[in-house]
């Protein structure tokens, strides 16, 4: 099992903690790199600002975006990402507590890989981590253009 890097854009620190614990309790070796807003997410991916050190901040194998974030929302980030050919093949998922259909629709339009609802139950969260792994992180690394 190859350890992967997951970039998680999320403004609620508790949610970050819970997801980390979920991966750990599921026995998955993946690293969760969190940014707290959409702008940081873009900086991270561009290797700019505080994220120039690619050893410390490697390009992710999977991106999880919350929708409701300051500065740039998850959907804005998604839009930006999809317009850049570099990151077209990178799986970007929306990970949110919003069940609004307009959010779902927008995410689909913007080409999100999936739209996931944040469960409150820790057990459910662990199952979600497992299914993320099964679906997105158990293949060999996607070819990424430097």
């Amino acid at each position: 099992m190859r350890p992967c890097t997951i970039l998680y854009a999320e403004d609620e620190p508790d949610d970050i903690l819970f997801l980390e614990r979920a991966f750990k309790s599921a026995g998955l070796p993946h690293t969760l790199n969190a940014v707290s807003d959409g702008e940081e997410a873009l900086q991270y991916l561009a290797g700019e600002g505080p994220f120039t050190d690619r050893a410390r901040y490697p390009l992710p194998d999977l991106i999880l975006l919350d929708i409701n974030m300051p500065k740039q929302s998850g959907l804005d980030v998604l839009a930006r990402l999809r317009s850049q050919p570099n990151f077209k093949s990178l799986p970007v998922l929306i990970f949110t507590s919003s069940s609004r259909s307009e959010d779902m629709e927008r995410a689909r339009q913007l080409g999100a890989g999936d739209y996931l609802l944040k469960p409150s139950d820790p057990l459910k969260l662990r199952e979600l981590a497992k299914s993320l792994h099964d679906r997105w992180l158990s293949q060999p690394a996607a070819a990424i253009n430097p």
């Binding site: 609620e12 508790d14 949610d15 903690l17 819970f18 409701n68 507590s97 409150s120 139950d121 820790p122």
Partner: peptide, 14 residues
């Protein structure tokens, strides 16, 4: 309601 759910997750989670 959306914002109310976050603290609840925290409560449940912790």
């Amino acid at each position: 309601t959306h914002d109310m759910r976050a603290p609840l997750r925290a409560m449940q989670g912790f």
